[in-house]
């Protein structure tokens, strides 16, 4: 399998006044195409920071993050945004839907950003993905007319509609009850099985991690090799 994401000795530090706070401390990791990977760990362990680094919404203080063969440190802000648009999908803990748009419009939004998808094609893809997440009956509803689980399904549909290579989900079940959370993870797994999309999701819920192909456990910003599946060795390209 080819690694679609690699992290090599990645360090992320935040500065709070004169104090430097390390959030990620020398993480080295390779994630293969099509993996359903869970990043687990307690609050403050660096899960979200790691996802932000992989998702190109944040940059590493030291080390290298490579996404789909591109070293993110060398990319301009515009190029990073393009990378996010074309290669990545995001699912947030609080769903982060656009409140004034209905289900269809929320899912359609990334396709509009792509700019080169015709209206007919957009409609086809949006309706198909909404059907796949089981929300066809709510296609004209606004987010505030949906339950938490339904909103997260919309977020999943939005993340997948552009056929990204990687979907990043930051605690996708944290704001849902356990039954709904389970269904959401199952849906993500179903999408992962049916498409060649890599899913990387963070969670602190042990029940959720059982669906993962691999679990990376973080503790104090480092991979906790003793309590989790050890990280795969980094494939060094010539």
């Amino acid at each position: 399998m080819n690694a679609i994401v690699t992290l090599n000795e990645v360090v992320k530090e935040y500065r709070l006044g004169s104090v430097v706070v390390p959030a990620v401390r020398g993480v080295t990791l390779a994630i293969d195409t099509g993996e359903f990977l869970s990043i687990a760990g307690p609050s403050g362990s660096g899960k979200t920071t790691l996802l932000n680094l992989i998702g190109c919404v944040d940059t590493a203080t030291r080390g290298t993050v490579t996404v789909d063969g591109q070293n993110t440190a060398t990319l301009s802000e515009r190029a990073l945004t393009d990378l996010r648009l074309h290669k990545l999908g995001f699912i947030f803990q609080s769903f982060n839907l656009i409140g004034v748009l209905n289900v269809f419009q929320n899912v359609e939004f990334p396709l509009l950003l792509l700019g080169n998808v015709s209206k007919v094609e957009r409609t086809r893809r949006v309706e198909k993905i909404i059907e796949q997440v089981g929300l066809s009956e709510h296609i004209r509803h606004r987010p505030n007319e949906l339950s938490g689980g339904q909103r997260q399904r919309v977020a999943i549909a939005r993340a997948l509609v552009t056929n990204p290579r990687i979907v990043l989900a930051d605690e996708p079940t944290a704001n849902l009850d356990s039954v709904t959370g389970d269904k959401i993870i199952q849906l993500m797994k179903h999408m992962n099985d049916n498409q060649d999309t890599t899913f990387i999701f963070s969670t602190h819920d042990p029940k959720v991690t059982r669906y993962a192909d691999r679990v990376i456990r973080l503790k104090d910003g480092q991979i906790d090799d003793e309590n989790g599946v050890p990280a795969k060795p980094l494939a060094v390209s010539a």
Partner: peptide, 14 residues
Amino acid sequence: TREIGTMRAIGAQK
């Protein structure tokens, strides 16, 4: 602000 962040994250340029 969160909406702006979300849009930027999913690929909206400045």
